[in-house]
Structures are given as structure tokens and as C-alpha cells.
Amino acid sequence: MHRFAFLSRRTGAALLGLAGLFAAPAFAGPVSTLYLASYTTARLYAIQGDTVSAGAPTYCNHCEVPIAVDGDIRTLSLSGTSGGQYALDRTQTGVTYAAAFAPDAGVRLVDGSTDGQRNYAVTTHAGDSHGLSSVYGFGRDWSNTEKLFDIDFRIDAGGITYDPGNQSLWISGTYSNDGVVYGLIRDYALDGTLLSQFNAGEFGGAGLAMDYADGTLWTTRGPTQFFDQYSRDGTLLQTVSYDALSGQGGYHGIEFNLAGDARTLPEPGSWALAGLALLIGAGVRRRQRVSLPPTPAAAAHA
């Protein structure tokens, strides 16, 4: 069973008006299949709509978190151990990938993504020797490690995903201000230039993924079972939770299939609602790209 919460006031009236034109209700949960690599259970899960498919075990016990999905699933360890390749049904193919860093390198990778040519991963600032979260690039087999850029304001990153429409990387992270932990989601060019950002409420989120079927962003908040969906302008579209993932904490990577989802297409009403959210997000986001960073981000720099 899942429990889903609310649509934002900014889009609620428009969505309800459009929904009346279609017989199909708005979807709850991701349009496409969302793949999750759990540190807690050392398993891979598939989430679509209101359903969670039971996880398959990973090669490495409690260490595979960065995840890249493009026709198959490729994971990397947090630090110092191996990752591996899986079919989309989450079965092991037998291919494993060497660690990107030595166990004593002081680097902890917490989520991954891919643009189809390269993989990407992001570190926590607590797990990097210079005290900043950083973004790294790799070959598709997680080889040829290259540091791309550091993340400013000392944001503690927890998620990364690739945006093919913008050829950019979205990063989710947290920062503390007056004893409260806040979430922040930022869009960076591949050279580290900040393009846009929005706040993601208290507690922030771990793992970040773009649903390539509708261009929305998904992150988890608090315990792993809670998932928030945002348009790219920062509008919170819905919150869903999954009892099957209850109790999972710690690190976890999430990602959609860049190559596309082969499942049955959603009903027309679902497409229309998702499309309206994208149109609203696109217009606001163009204005945000030239605006100043929000005040909470500046506070995180203090």
C-alpha cells in the first residue's frame, strides 16, 4: 500500500481543471520505473506507480550505492570495494567493476547517474578529504575517474542525476541553519557553473533521479520510504510513500532508465497532467536561471 499526499497550490487549480477533461485520474508515484540501490538491505528495488518490486541482492554486501541506468544497471561502491552490472530485472550479469578509489582515499560516493557515454557520481563532504562535496566523471564501466568540480556553500550532497534536455547535472543536498537541516536541489553545467536551484524543505533528500518520461525530479526524504516529486522549477508535485521500504535508512542511490521504459504507456490523463507540470516548470525555470541564489543557500556558506 502507498500513501500519497498533496499537489502544490501553485499548480493545483490548473491540474484539477485539466483533469476534468479526461476519464483517467492523476498518477501516483513515478511514471517510469525507478531503480533504487539500498545500502541498508544490500539489494536493488524497482518502483513504478504504487508498486515496489522485491529487491535482488547486490554483488557487494552493504556497499553498492551509486547507480547508473541506461539499458542496464551499473553500480559502484561507496568506497574501496566493487560494484557490478545487472539486467533491468535486477539479476546479476556476472560483470563487476573495480573500486574508483582506494579504501583509505577518504572519498565516499553516495549516488550516480549517466549520460549514456559517461557515468557520474557525487560525494558527501564528510566523506571527502578536502571537506567539500564533489562531482566525478567516469567511463561507462566506472573506470577513468576524473574529478569535475567541487560544490560550493559546503552543501552536503546526497544525490545526482543527468538532464539530457539541458546536458547538465542536478545535485541534491542538505545544509544546516539554526539547527534545522534543509534540502537544496541545484542544476549544474558539466563545468560546475550553477544554472538554477530551489529549496526542498526541511530534512532534505538522499538520492536524486529524473524521470525521462515527464522531466520531473524525484528524491527521497527522511526514511527511504518517502519520495518527493518536483518539477524543475521547484514546484512540489506530490509526495508518496511505500511501506515495503519502511525502516531503510542510510545511503541509497536512485535512477531512471536513460534509454526509456519499455512498460505500457500511461493513460492520456496522466500524460496531460505531467505535461502541464512541465510547461509550468519550464517557464518559471527560465526566469530562475538568471536570479540570485535563495537566501538559505547563502546562510549555508556561513
Results as ranks from 00 to 15, higher is better:
residue 25 P to V: 07
residue 25 P to C: 08
residue 26 A to V: 11
residue 26 A to K: 08
residue 26 A to R: 14
residue 28 A to F: 09
residue 28 A to G: 10
residue 29 G to C: 09
residue 31 V to W: 03
residue 31 V to H: 07
residue 33 T to N: 07
residue 36 L to M: 13
residue 37 A to I: 05
residue 39 Y to W: 14
residue 41 T to D: 14
residue 43 R to Q: 14
residue 45 Y to G: 01
residue 47 I to H: 02
residue 51 T to G: 04
residue 52 V to Q: 05
residue 56 A to F: 09
residue 61 N to G: 11
residue 64 E to C: 07
residue 68 A to W: 01
residue 70 D to A: 15
residue 72 D to V: 06
residue 81 T to V: 11
residue 85 Q to H: 13
residue 86 Y to N: 02
residue 86 Y to I: 04
residue 88 L to P: 03
residue 90 R to L: 14
residue 92 Q to N: 12
residue 93 T to K: 10
residue 94 G to W: 10
residue 94 G to T: 12
residue 96 T to A: 12
residue 97 Y to A: 04
residue 99 A to Y: 03
residue 105 A to R: 03
residue 106 G to R: 03
residue 107 V to I: 15
residue 108 R to E: 12
residue 109 L to S: 04
residue 110 V to H: 01
residue 111 D to P: 05
residue 112 G to R: 00
residue 112 G to K: 02
residue 114 T to M: 06
residue 117 Q to L: 14
residue 118 R to Q: 13
residue 119 N to H: 06
residue 119 N to Q: 08
residue 119 N to M: 05
residue 121 A to S: 14
residue 123 T to V: 10
residue 125 H to L: 13
residue 125 H to G: 04
residue 126 A to K: 10
residue 127 G to S: 10
residue 128 D to H: 13
residue 132 L to A: 12
residue 132 L to Q: 15
residue 132 L to T: 12
residue 133 S to K: 01
residue 138 F to V: 04
residue 138 F to M: 07
residue 138 F to A: 04
residue 142 W to E: 01
residue 146 E to H: 10
residue 146 E to R: 15
residue 150 D to E: 14
residue 151 I to G: 00
residue 154 R to K: 13
residue 155 I to Y: 00
residue 157 A to N: 06
residue 160 I to W: 01
residue 160 I to G: 00
residue 162 Y to M: 05
residue 167 Q to S: 14
residue 167 Q to A: 14
